[in-house]
Design a protein around this nucleic acid. Structure first.
Length: 244
DNA sequence: TAAGTTGTTCGGGG
DNA sequence: CCCCCGAACAACTT
């Protein structure tokens, strides 16, 4: 279920617990939960695909992986991997990885690369791409969480299609103007994804992800597990240019 | 119905 | 020691 926008959407639904006291944490996850007892939850934020539960001297990251989900004041039949209990209710996570990290999230994550944060810095991302990822295929680089946090396979596929760039193009071969356009397109599509999450229309409204033909000229799409990331990729070889 | 998946980490082998 | 690959995780949809 989760790419960056899904996490942001779910995070916003948890805000009623901000400032409340965590009475107890539970779940079968291996993280030591003993510190999460009668402690004030200062803030609930998100970075990339992580939920951030921020306490005074540390924070807890929750990652939904591929199969994870979250429920507020409701439970599934299966056991929660992580749960926070409050006098006012509870947050239940299923199939998650959690981690307790000392310090503040902004000292640990670079907010400049999060496609859904106001701190996002397109010039910084462009420079990172050009200086550190030149030899990588753009299809691999764009989903790298160090390049742009929050990008998942759907955002990757749709942004590259909308930018008319073949994912197999090496970063160093792509004109700077096209990279700038790709970054901008990725941000815009992330917002569209967020809006579609509210109506569950992400997949039906996708242009090429999960489709067989290009919506522009009905060309059959190349559908292949490709690149270092080994994720299913949808490409219109007519519309998307392979730079080399 | 069984295969496929909006993701990441870990560890083994080369 | 580094890189690449596959396994593991374990739930829901089609």
């Amino acid at each position: 279920m989760p790419e960056g926008p899904t996490i942001l959407f779910q995070k916003n639904k948890l805000q009623r617990f901000k400032g409340k006291i965590v009475s107890e944490a539970s779940g079968y996850g291996e993280m030591d939960k003993s510190a999460l007892h009668n402690i004030k939850l200062m803030d609930i934020d998100a970075f990339g695909k992580y939920f951030l539960f921020i306490f005074k001297d540390f924070f807890v990251t929750v990652h939904l992986g591929l199969f994870g989900s979250v429920l507020v004041n409701d439970r599934k039949k299966v056991n929660a991997s992580f749960a926070l209990h409050f006098a006012e209710g509870e947050i239940n996570f299923y199939v998650t990885k959690t981690k307790l990290i000392e310090g503040r999230p902004q000292d640990h994550f670079n907010y400049k690369v999060d496609i859904l944060k106001p701190e996002f810095d397109a010039a910084f991302v462009l420079n990172e791409l050009q200086t550190k990822y030149g030899d990588e295929a753009i299809g691999d680089a764009v989903i790298d969480q160090h390049v742009m946090a929050g990008v998942g396979n759907i955002i990757r596929v749709e942004s590259l299609y909308r930018s008319k760039i073949d994912p197999r193009s090496l970063v160093k071969d792509i004109p700077e103007k096209k990279l700038v356009f790709l970054i901008k397109t990725t941000l815009m599509y992330a917002q569209e994804f967020l809006a579609l999450t509210k109506t569950k229309g992400v997949k039906t409204e996708a242009l090429v992800y999960g489709k067989k033909t290009c919506p522009i000229d009905k060309t059959e799409l190349l559908v292949e597990v490709m690149g270092k990331v080994k994720r299913k990729t949808y490409v219109c070889e007519k519309c998307q240019k392979l730079y080399k």
